[in-house]
Amino acid sequence: MSATPHRRAIRGLTLIELLVAMAVGLVVVLAAVSALTVARRGFTTVDAASQLRDNGRFAADMIQRIGVQTGYRDVFFAATPRQPTTTDPAPSIMGFNNAKVNLTSPLTSSTARPATEAGTGSDVLIMRYQPAQIHTMTVSSTDADKTMIDCAGNAPATVADINTTAARDALMASVFSIGVNQGEPTLMCTYYDSATSAWLSSPIVQGVENFQVLYGVDGVTAGTATAAGAASPNVPNAYLRADQIGVSGNSTATNANWRRVRSVRIGMVLRSAKGAAQDSQTQTFYPFGPTKGSATGTTGSAFADATNDPGTVFQPTPDGRLRQTLTFTIHLRNDQGL
């Protein structure tokens, strides 16, 4: 009689009880995994967004740093007038629309970008300036003070002898464009390497898939030579593409127009690695910002021209990446004249 209750107390689970316990446990595990997955994905998105902001800040800082130098000339040349000459020196700022860098001659020509290549519709921006000399009592030194750098961070150790005619127009250059690095569209820096006597390109920020440039000009009409002696209040009254500043068949007029550039408006679209976005939707980006061309205009219409400048209306294929636009304007503080 006393054994029966004892046997009932120590008996195991029935099959139904075991199945119910397993089902409850499975629900708990699935809920935990789901919560972990959501948390992990949220962390990935936040981390990618933070990286995009950091990349954007770095790219803007670098371009603005070079922009501040653009047009700079050593005090010796800035303080002395140019003598009459037939030489037409290259402008301090110029660029190419919807193109990529030609490493053979990056300052005078560009290469067409295939439609299938990353960065389609992006532009090339060229900024030139003069390294500063360490001035001595005898002004015979050719040592540079190393305050002027190119986009790769290189500072020349020497400058041209200021007593030579060619020294006045001896400028260093930084070229910004979009290239491909490790399979990703990248903001590239092209610079002249004195050690190898060749133009080299190095990556600045990876994940920049769209790079747009407009030039704030003073008194320039698209494709037209500016009248000699035209007033120049040094305030931009229009923003033009690089191909609108050039004058067909007239390099002198083209250079004169480039010298009337007073500011540069930069627009970029940066992207993260795949899988960072919470969803994949078709999006349209306006690298030059959301400003409307008129009160009734559509978003981004102020600087967008899908026909002549397709990169200004950018609609990438949905691929699970986060994207961010970056827009800023650089006002050139150095005289862009001769």
Rank of each mutant, 00 (worst) to 15 (best):
M1G: 13
S2H: 07
P5M: 04
H6R: 13
G12H: 09
L13Y: 15
T14L: 00
I16K: 09
L19I: 14
V20I: 15
A21N: 06
V24E: 01
V24C: 03
V24F: 12
V28M: 09
T37S: 05
V38T: 07
A39R: 12
R40K: 07
R41W: 10
T44F: 10
D47K: 06
A48V: 06
S50P: 04
R57T: 09
F58H: 08
A59Q: 00
A60D: 02
I63E: 00
I66M: 07
V68P: 03
R73Y: 11
R73W: 07
F76S: 07
A78R: 13
T80G: 08
R82D: 14
T85H: 12
T85L: 10
T86R: 12
D88N: 09
P91N: 08
P91C: 02
I93H: 01
N97F: 06
T111A: 12
A112P: 08
R113Y: 11
R113M: 13
A115R: 14
G119P: 04
G119M: 01
I126S: 06
R128P: 02
Y129K: 07
H135P: 13
H135Y: 13
M137R: 15
T138P: 04
T138M: 15
S140A: 15
T142K: 13
D143N: 15
T147H: 07
I149M: 14
G153D: 08
A155D: 13
N163Y: 14
A167N: 10
L171F: 12
L171K: 07
V175F: 02
F176S: 02
N181C: 04
P185W: 09
P185A: 06
C189T: 05
S194M: 04
A195P: 03
A195L: 12
S197R: 14
A198V: 15
V205D: 01
V208Q: 03
F211H: 02
Y215E: 04
V220G: 01
A222R: 03
A222C: 08
T224I: 11
A225Q: 00
A225W: 01
T226Q: 05
S232Q: 11
Y239V: 10
R241M: 06
A242Y: 04
D243E: 13
G246R: 04
V247I: 14
V247P: 06
N250Y: 07
V261A: 01
R262I: 00
R265E: 06
G267M: 05
M268Q: 06
M268G: 01
V269Q: 03
A276N: 00
A276E: 00
D279P: 04
S280V: 08
A295D: 05
T298W: 08
T299R: 14
S301N: 11
V313G: 02
D319H: 14
G320E: 11
R321C: 12
L322E: 15
Q324I: 09
T325S: 08
T327K: 10
H331K: 12
R333Q: 11
N334Y: 01
L338A: 06
L338W: 08
